[in-house]
């Protein structure tokens, strides 16, 4: 078995056993957009022109896209030869203009973008931002749906990171940037208003959670809402005062900042956010759980939440996967 032919336009690429379509195309120097290589950002979406793609390569895609044989190249281990197309990507970009940029903490910037067209999104979803040269990265929307034309993002600077360093150092108010259709399945819907919510985020993982919390409170969510925001040290946290104020204003909203290294100052819990949360709330039966940020935290917390009684369909997560540097 092993070798599968991937035909793209006139070009033929051989996909080896254990290799994804994305890996094969990149090895052949085909210019295909990608970012996370984990099936999260959907920037590597392509379409099969002949055979239906394997179901595992359509994880998280909308039904209509699945039916049209779209799939994620980074998830696809082909089961047979395939003809594919990169063109006519369904992803739709609108033009955005940066209208505000401020530091939330030394490593995270709050970026506000005014979009030409209002975007239809659910609080907690993310978009792909595209630089003029085509570099794409995913960022979560941090505001609720009230401002469908104005989107804010929390962008954490990674040393040597192509996109985040550029945002921090070069992108200015007044500059334009392309903004994709919102995507992702980690979002809040105002159903089951009495369900308790547990939200755990690390670093800029607070962004989607903040959007979800505001959305829930604006809809009058009646269940308890518990937020745990973690970082290594206090410098990596932000919006501490804002979240505390929100907790004073809404009786059902509770906020616990956490630091995993060193001593925690007064009012901040010591320990990793997911450990602190699970110790405080040992029984999650019936809860809805949102997990965003570092992939290790997300995976561990997912398992813990499930073992503590949350059912799998009530666990929503966005792991902020960073493309593996070795393949760049």
């Amino acid at each position: 078995m092993a070798l599968k032919k991937i035909i793209l336009d006139e070009h033929e690429t051989i996909c080896h056993e254990g290799e994804t379509v994305l890996e094969a195309l990149l090895r052949d120097n085909v210019d295909i957009p990608f970012s996370c290589k984990q099936g999260a950002c959907q920037s590597c979406m392509v379409r099969s022109l002949d055979v239906p793609p394997p179901a595992h390569a359509q994880k998280g895609l909308k039904d209509v896209l699945c039916k049209q044989n779209h799939f994620l190249a980074c998830l696809c281990y082909p089961e047979q030869d395939m003809s594919i197309t990169l063109g006519h990507q369904p992803e739709y970009f609108t033009e955005g203009t940066v209208i505000a940029k401020e530091l939330l903490n030394p490593e995270t910037v709050l970026l506000t973008i005014q979009c030409k067209d209002a975007l239809d999104y659910y609080a907690g979803q993310f978009v792909n931002l595209k630089r003029a040269d085509g570099l794409i990265r995913s960022y979560s929307i941090s505001n609720s749906r009230r401002h469908a034309e104005k989107l804010s993002f929390h962008i954490r600077r990674l040393a040597g990171g192509k996109f985040s360093e550029w945002v921090h150092q070069e992108l200015n108010v007044g500059d334009t940037i392309s903004v994709s259709d919102p995507q992702g399945l980690c979002y809040y819907l105002p159903d089951k208003m009495e369900q308790s919510l547990l939200l755990i985020g690390t670093g800029s993982g607070l962004a989607p959670l903040a959007g979800i919390i505001h959305e829930a409170l604006e809809h009058g969510h009646t269940g308890e809402i518990h937020l745990y925001h973690g970082s290594r040290d206090v410098d990596g946290l932000y919006w501490i005062d804002e979240m505390r104020e929100l907790a004073e204003k809404y009786e059902n909203f509770h906020y616990t900042p956490c630091v995993s290294r060193g001593d925690a100052p007064e009012g901040v819990a010591q320990g990793r956010a997911n450990d602190v949360a699970m110790a405080n709330i040992p029984d999650l039966k019936g809860w809805r759980v949102y997990l965003c940020g570092h992939p290790d935290m997300v995976n561990q917390a997912k398992r813990m939440a499930y073992l503590n009684g949350a059912s799998l369909q009530d666990i929503y997560s966005d792991a902020f996967h960073v493309a593996s540097p070795t393949l760049d």
Binding site: R303, Y306, L312
Partner: peptide, 10 residues
């Protein structure tokens, strides 16, 4: 599935 998988993982 929900019950079974939780038992197995625990």
């Amino acid at each position: 599935v929900d019950i079974f998988y939780r038992k197995v993982l625990a």
